[in-house]
Simulated scan of single mutants.
Amino acid sequence: MPLTELGRFPRVEAQIIVGRLESEGVPAVAFDGEASIGDGSWLLIPVRVMVDAGDMAEARRILDSAA
């Protein structure tokens, strides 16, 4: 299945979310984490957390339960 965007988050938060999802058995990946690192604006660019389309409902449930 294709990857689907779960959401866009600050860089560190995105890595925490990926770790949480993976600890619950939902594979996830963070995209754009290294974007614009050369010019110093990397903290301003949100990181996309991507999951398999079939895992979206479970990923949202896990994310909502952490809030």
Rank of each mutant, 00 (worst) to 15 (best):
P2S: 11
L3E: 12
T4V: 09
E5R: 07
E5V: 03
E5Q: 06
G7D: 13
F9Y: 15
F9Q: 14
R11S: 10
R11A: 10
V12L: 14
V12I: 12
E13C: 01
A14L: 07
A14C: 06
Q15H: 08
Q15S: 07
I16F: 10
I17N: 10
I17L: 14
V18C: 08
V18A: 08
R20H: 14
L21T: 06
L21A: 06
L21V: 05
L21K: 08
E22S: 05
E22L: 02
S23K: 15
S23F: 06
S23G: 14
E24Y: 03
E24L: 02
G25W: 06
G25V: 01
V26F: 03
V26W: 06
A28M: 02
A28Y: 02
V29L: 10
V29D: 08
F31R: 08
F31I: 00
G33A: 11
E34K: 11
E34W: 10
A35R: 13
S36I: 12
I37G: 09
I37H: 11
S41R: 12
L43K: 14
L44N: 15
L44P: 00
L44D: 11
L44G: 13
I45F: 08
P46M: 13
V47G: 04
R48D: 07
R48N: 07
R48L: 00
R48W: 02
V49E: 15
M50T: 02
M50G: 00
D52Y: 04
D52E: 13
A53F: 03
D55M: 01
D55A: 04
D55H: 05
D55Y: 00
M56F: 08
E58L: 05
E58N: 03
A59Q: 04
A59N: 06
A59T: 01
R60V: 00
R60S: 01
D64R: 02
S65Q: 13
A67H: 07
